[in-house]
Simulated assay, not measured.
Amino acid sequence: MPTEGVYGNVEGLAQFTRALARAGADGVRDEVKQANFDVAEKLKDAAQSKAAGLSRQQRSAAQSLRATKTQNYSAIRMGSARKPYALGAEFGAKKLTRKGAIARGFRPWRGNEFDGWAGGPGYFLHPSIREKGPQLIQEYMDKIDRLMSEAFPE
């Protein structure tokens, strides 16, 4: 399972869930779906905790984080119609106002390292992924291994 940045790919997961469907193992499919959701939910909680120590805008933006639930992947969505500034709160802004302040009260840009930020992108979600990701991936893979063993004992 190679990981690249904040993206983790479990090779064969889609094929595994299709095989479960063919085998009539709907209960195991539901457990895989729940395992996907659990990872996203734990990352969301970690990001909201990290944002709690930041600005009011970042705390508010972090409250818009929500985990998604599918059989083949998990994701965390950010922002809403009521919080359109969520991505700016996570990544900051490059544009300065006439008075030299960062636009709309955002912190300085942390979207990529091209502007001198070497710590990685983001203020709360992406740092949480970097900190918690390896542990959560291991927990997830352990659960998938257990589910595979139960579904296809040999």
Rank of each mutant, 00 (worst) to 15 (best):
A93Y: 00
N112S: 13
S74K: 02
A62V: 09
R29I: 01
Q58C: 05
A118H: 06
F124K: 00
G120R: 06
K44A: 13
S64W: 00
K99T: 15
A93T: 13
F114T: 09
E4H: 07
E31G: 01
G133R: 03
L65A: 05
M78T: 13
R29P: 13
V10H: 07
S128V: 12
K95S: 13
Q34I: 04
V10Q: 13
P2I: 05
G119K: 15
D38L: 14
Y7L: 15
R82N: 02
S80K: 15
R110L: 11
L136H: 10
T3D: 05
A40T: 03
T17E: 03
S64N: 08
A46F: 04
D142C: 06
D26A: 11
E11N: 12
K44V: 15
A75E: 08
T68V: 11
K143W: 08
A81Y: 14
G133H: 00
I129T: 08
K83Y: 01
Q15K: 13
L54E: 05
R18F: 13
V6W: 06
K94S: 06
P153C: 08
Q135S: 15
G24D: 03
E90D: 06
S49D: 08
P127M: 12
P84R: 15
E139A: 09
Q57C: 01
K132I: 00
K33A: 12
G92T: 04
R104Q: 13
E90F: 00
G122P: 00
T70D: 07
Y7E: 14
L54V: 02
G92E: 06
Q57V: 04
R82M: 02
E131S: 14
K83A: 07
G53Y: 05
Q34G: 07
M1P: 12
I102Q: 08
A46G: 06
Q138F: 05
S60Y: 03
R59F: 14
G12A: 09
S74Y: 09
S149C: 03
G119Q: 10
E4I: 06
G5M: 07
D38T: 11
R22L: 13
H126V: 08
A101Y: 11
M148L: 10
E139D: 14
I144R: 11
S128H: 12
N72F: 00
S49F: 08
I144H: 11
I129R: 03
D115N: 10
T17D: 01
K42C: 00
A52W: 08
G105A: 03
A14R: 12
I137S: 01
A46E: 10
D142K: 10
W109P: 04
G120S: 06
V39W: 08
Y85S: 12
A101P: 11
D30G: 13
I76C: 05
D115C: 01
S55D: 02
F124N: 02
S64G: 02
P108T: 04
G100A: 13
R59I: 10
Q48A: 13
A81I: 01
A23W: 06
D145T: 14
I129F: 07
M78G: 04
A93Q: 06
Q138N: 15
K143V: 12
A35W: 04
N112Q: 05
A86M: 00
E131H: 07
E150I: 04
G88N: 07
Q63E: 12
G92A: 00
Q57P: 01
K42S: 10
Y7T: 15
R59D: 05
P84C: 15
